[in-house]
Amino acid sequence: MSGEELTEQETALYDRQIRVWGVDAQRRLSKSHIFVSGLKGTAVEFCKNIVLAGVGSLTLNDDNPVTPEALAANFLIPFDENMGGGGSLADLCCDSLKDFNPMVHVSVEKGDLSSFGVDFFEKFDIVVISCCSLAAKKSVNEKCRKLSKKLAFYSVDCRDSCGEIFVDLQKYCYVKKKADETDECQLDYPSFEEAIAIPWRSLPKRVSKLYFAMRVVERFEEVERRKPGETSIADLANVLKLRNELCLAHSLNESQIPDTLLERLVVSTKEFPPVSAILGGILGQEVIKAISGKGDPLKNFFFFDAVDGKGVIEDISTS
């Protein structure tokens, strides 16, 4: 037991949160390894949260250079006329995050996300990707599923003042607290590919409109071979056309995916910082739940739209 105990330094630093999730969860956190790819505003919020929480290690992946736009949305990168002197986004975020909590090992993994094979992901417990193409989401999710160890996969995206989180915990067992008794629970998660393949008409009624809208935009970017977020007002007509086709194929009323919503997602693709903070917070909490095995995990989509202010969980699965 003595080797397992938290140090005095850890107890002092993590005092307030140990009072929320307990010593045992804190110990598990300190042994967990997290991988994050795509370091825009929302992912950066998430990184801040889990570094503060005291995970064991965090590996960052984003080879993009620092641009004025990246600088504007990222509180981890100190303002610099020289745009970070040639370092990648991951390099600069890494330097800042190390400073947040000296007890967390933060490092950079160079390379394109799609170049990482199944074995690469073996060393992680949690994989989070952000601002990725549809193909990348599917492929990384599948690689995570091929491993014998249980690995939790998350994707998070923020466009305009809307956001989406996807969660795949595969087969996840946890202890559910009910008043005084505890229940062993098991949840069955579909992969991203499986989830989005479910015919829209067989989904429960009143599924968030954002779910459908995000699928339309994602599909548009794939068909047009755009990078994520590479859309403009000029694309709106074609996006609406695609919406109509998809709605027809799925026998869904077009009004379920309003023009105004699609317009927001297509036109202003920048992340809205307050929404990034909210998504990064929700995702941080979910990852902490998954690592500690405490609390009901989110299954399997989360949506937030600042216009109505609702943060909604949708279960998009066949089970």
Partner: peptide, 12 residues
Amino acid sequence: HAVATTNAIIAG
């Protein structure tokens, strides 16, 4: 009891 995530959400 206090955690960073809730504060981040509330601030947003």
